[in-house]
Each structure stands twice: as C-alpha cells, then as structure tokens.
Amino acid sequence: MTVQISRSPGADQASANGVYCYGITWATAAPPRGEGVGGKVVAAVRDGELAALTSPVESTKVRAKRRDLLNHSEVLAAALERGTVLPLRFGVVFENEAALVEGFLRSRQEELAALLRKFEGKVELTVRAQYEENAILAEIVQANPRIAQLREQTRGGQDAATYPLRAELGERVADELQRRTERDRKALLDRLSPLAVDTEVDRERIEHQALRASFLVKRRDVTAFDDVMDELAGTHAGRIRFKYVGPLAPHSFVSVTPLESR
C-alpha cells in the first residue's frame, strides 16, 4: 500500500506561519501540553466554542519523521485524557492561523460541534487477534483426516513427485484456515460488539489474523469491555494472541461532509 500525500499548488512556497493541526476540542478544555511535530510546543487556537490543537511549522514542506508520527498520536492521547477530541489525520497544515480559523473552525463550526457532542464520553478501543501459527495449524491437521493423510504423504519430500499433493495440502489448509478465521471472527465480534456503540471491522485478509477491529465504547463501559477481553483471552489461550489498545480518540469513527457534497 502506498500512501501519497499530494501537495496543492503553492505548497512549495515557504510559509513562515504554517499551522499544523492535530485535532479539535471544546474551547473550554484544559490547555494542551507536550511536544508536537518538529518538537514544537502544542497550543490551542480558539474560535467560538471550538479549539484546534496546533503547533507552528516553519515551512509547508515538512518531512515527517518517526518521532513526528508518535508525537501526533501522543498529543491526541493527552487531549483525550482531558476531554473529547476529534482526531485529524496526520499531515494537515494550514497556511496560517487565519486560514485555520476562517477556512475550518468557523465555516465548520456547527458540524464540528455536533461531532464533539456525538463523541462525548466515548472512546475507541482497538483489538487485534492473531493466531499462534503452530497451534492453529495443529488444530487443522487434527480435525481433518484428509489433511493429516496428505501431510503424512508429503513429509520429507519436497521433490516434483509430491508437488501435486503438496499443492492440494496447502490449498486445503488455506481453506480451512479461512473457515476458522470467519468462525472465530464472528464469535469474537458477537461478544465484543454488544458493548460498543459502533464497530469498524477491517476486512483485509492478513495472514493468521483472526480479527482486527475498532470499537466505539462509552467510557463507563470500558471496564466491562476489559473483562470480556480477559475472558476471550482465557477462552482462546494458546491459539490466539490479543493486542488490545485504548482508550483512544475516535480515529476510526470521525468524518466530515466532503466540501463537494455540501
């Protein structure tokens, strides 16, 4: 996957007053702190009931470093600890403060305020469930006589004679793995989704990945979600490894109306 962020005409011109934007909060939220992109201090730019979390950039041609990506994420995490925040995608720079205020905060005031209200008291939790390769393959061999038989017939032989059998074995294993993935994914979602206001499931087929999903959860339900995660890790101990991250700003759930369709 290649992500190319294109530059609009004029972006090459140096702009000493560039404003990098991380996210939107209520104007009443506690002031931001910490380091942002390029190590610059993060500050709030307020207009009406909204505030944008920003830091200065000297040029609109900024090179993103590893540290910058991590800082973007940390600025949003810190903001979430102090209230509701609408996270922006990495890499948004306004030409100057006036462009941010007039071109975004003010012109989108109602829409942004409605989004902040919508996400009030809710956080994103992400869950990634990855099969333990040896465990899941062993399950598959033990549950399928034909696969076990093919395995016996092809063990120790990587030559041309066993090629058709190896191809059949692999295809059967791949199909079975896909069936188990669908079954496990459904079982996991059946337990987790009822605790969430909204669920976003990544449908991309990643090897050995049983589930990758984001859940929008009320803050007061996070503990219950934790408990279900513990239960699921127990149920699947030895065969599925879970990575559970949050609470996060609602990255997977925010969107604004595209300008063209307004």
Binding site: V3, R7, T60, F94, V254, V256
Partner: peptide, 29 residues
C-alpha cells in the same frame, strides 16, 4: 491509526500538506 484514519479536511481547505511520500509495507496480506 493516524495515516489511514481520522478527520480528513477537503483539499480546498487543506491548503498545504507535508511534502513527503509515506510508504507502508504490509507483507502479510
């Protein structure tokens, strides 16, 4: 989280964006 997701602002409003090419490699598909 932050490259694939989050609020995107219209090209018309986003007057300038960081001049980089970010490449993610995912060998596991």
């Amino acid at each position: 989280l932050i490259l694939d997701k989050g609020l995107v602002i219209d090209a018309y409003v986003r007057i300038a964006v960081i001049g980089i090419e970010l490449i993610t490699i995912d060998a596991r598909i």
